[in-house]
Amino acid sequence: MINLTRVVIISGEGTEPGAIEPHTGLPTMRAIKARLTRERCGGDRWAHAIAYVAEGEGVNLETDSPRSWPPAYDRAFKD
C-alpha cells in the first residue's frame, strides 16, 4: 500500500517542464484523480501524480511505474 500523504502534482502545457505542487487535499486516490482531472482542463494540459516511496524514490499513481523523487519535489512541501 502506497502512503498518499506525500504526493506531488506535476502539471503543464505542451513540452514545458511543468509546475510542481504538493497535493493538499484528502489523501485518497479519488481526491488525487479528481485533482488531476481539474489540472488537465479537458485535455488542454497534462498532469501526473507522484507519491513518495523512499529516499529518492517515488511512484506514478496512475501507472504504478517507479519514478525518481528529486529534491525539487521535497521543496514543494516547504514553500
Rank of each mutant, 00 (worst) to 15 (best):
M1N: 10
M1A: 14
M1L: 07
M1W: 06
I2D: 12
I2K: 11
N3M: 07
T5P: 02
T5W: 08
R6D: 08
R6T: 14
R6S: 11
I9H: 12
I10L: 12
I10S: 02
S11C: 11
G12L: 07
G12E: 11
E13Q: 15
G14M: 06
G14C: 10
T15V: 12
T15D: 15
T15K: 13
E16T: 10
E16R: 14
G18V: 10
G18S: 12
G18L: 08
A19F: 10
A19C: 07
A19T: 14
A19I: 06
I20G: 00
I20V: 15
E21R: 14
P22C: 09
H23C: 04
G25M: 09
G25Q: 05
P27V: 04
M29Q: 05
M29T: 03
R30G: 09
R30V: 11
R30F: 11
A31F: 02
I32M: 11
I32T: 07
K33L: 07
A34T: 13
R35L: 01
L36H: 02
L36N: 03
T37V: 06
T37F: 01
R38N: 10
R38P: 00
R38D: 14
R38I: 05
R38C: 03
E39G: 00
E39C: 14
E39M: 13
R40A: 02
R40E: 13
C41I: 12
C41P: 01
C41A: 15
C41S: 14
G42A: 03
G42R: 09
G43R: 13
G43N: 11
R45Y: 12
W46K: 08
W46H: 08
A47R: 06
A47N: 09
A47L: 08
A47W: 03
H48L: 13
H48W: 13
A49F: 05
I50E: 00
I50N: 03
A51G: 10
Y52H: 14
Y52G: 02
A54Q: 15
A54S: 15
A54H: 14
A54R: 15
A54K: 14
E55S: 11
E55A: 12
E55C: 01
E55V: 09
G56E: 04
G56N: 01
E57M: 11
G58E: 07
V59N: 02
V59C: 09
N60D: 15
L61P: 02
L61A: 07
L61Y: 02
E62A: 10
D64A: 15
D64W: 14
D64Y: 13
S65I: 02
P66F: 01
P66G: 01
R67D: 02
R67N: 06
R67Y: 00
P70S: 09
P70I: 05
P70T: 06
P70Q: 03
P70H: 03
P71S: 02
P71D: 11
P71L: 08
A72T: 14
A72N: 05
A72W: 00
Y73I: 03
Y73Q: 04
D74K: 02
R75D: 06
A76V: 00
F77I: 01
D79G: 04
D79P: 00
D79H: 00
D79S: 05
